[in-house]
């Protein structure tokens, strides 16, 4: 290069090399840590019920009896995200259950589109501290499903509120939002592109 490197003494040159390698190691470590935060976040959410996340794996029924003294209202809301022809209906909008009592509620998936498509129902619970105590025995949460054109499918949700649900929680709201599953068969999104495409 143009200006000669200043003559570093031997040990400061090795010191520099050591510092550089330690910094590079720290950098790679922190970059990996950023990506490790993603699964860590999910684990943390399930443990603390942060942001209404719900454990998606089915859990066994807890048989430690029903707490007759308390009634908790569980509300169900079904919503459809954009881009999917489906309609999600629920048998009853609200149930009153005792903590510990397994309950079943019927949900109907209804594909009103003119062709088969893939979709899934994304759950969310509020208040967030209740989501740890909402045990799903059988649930379609996050399951990718394929419905033929015009097909209607009944899927039950069996759940159980654990007995140690905090006493100040007496209403739990469970929301399911329908979303298309990208990448599977041409979902609604693909063929409307041409409708928009022409105008650009």
């Amino acid at each position: 290069m143009t200006t000669p490197d200043p003559q570093l003494s031997r040990e400061s040159r090795s010191g520099v090399r050591r510092t550089v390698w330690r910094s590079v190691a720290a950098l790679v470590g922190m970059f990996a840590f950023a990506f490790a935060l993603v699964p860590l976040y999910d684990v943390f959410c399930q443990v603390t019920g942060l942001n209404g996340k719900v454990s998606n794996s089915a859990q066994a029924v807890m048989h430690d009896g029903v707490d007759q003294s308390r009634l908790v209202t569980v509300q169900f809301i079904t919503r459809s995200g954009s881009g999917l022809h489906w309609q999600l209906g629920v048998e009853t909008r609200q149930v009153r259950v005792h903590p510990g009592q397994p309950t079943e509620v019927g949900f109907t998936f209804d594909n009103q589109g003119s062709e088969a498509s893939w979709g899934r129902a994304v759950p969310s619970v509020s208040p967030s501290q209740a989501s740890q105590h909402l045990r799903k025995i059988s649930c379609f949460c996050f399951d990718e499903q394929r419905l033929a054109a015009g097909e209607r499918r009944e899927i039950p949700l069996v759940f159980q509120l654990s007995r140690d649900l905090p006493s100040d929680v007496n209403t739990v709201t469970l929301v399911y939002t329908l979303y298309p599953v990208e990448g599977r068969e041409a979902s609604q999104q693909a063929n409307t592109r041409s409708l928009q495409g022409e105008e650009a």
């Binding site: 910094s23 950098l27 922190m30 970059f31 990506f35 990208e182």
Partner: peptide
């Protein structure tokens, strides 16, 4: 900077993957 800029790089890479790689 050493501890924090890689996290920004990570977030921005995740964004890139969300936008372009599905």
């Amino acid at each position: 900077l050493i501890a924090v800029m890689p996290v920004l790089a990570g977030v921005v890479t995740m964004m890139l993957m969300d936008i372009n790689f599905g």
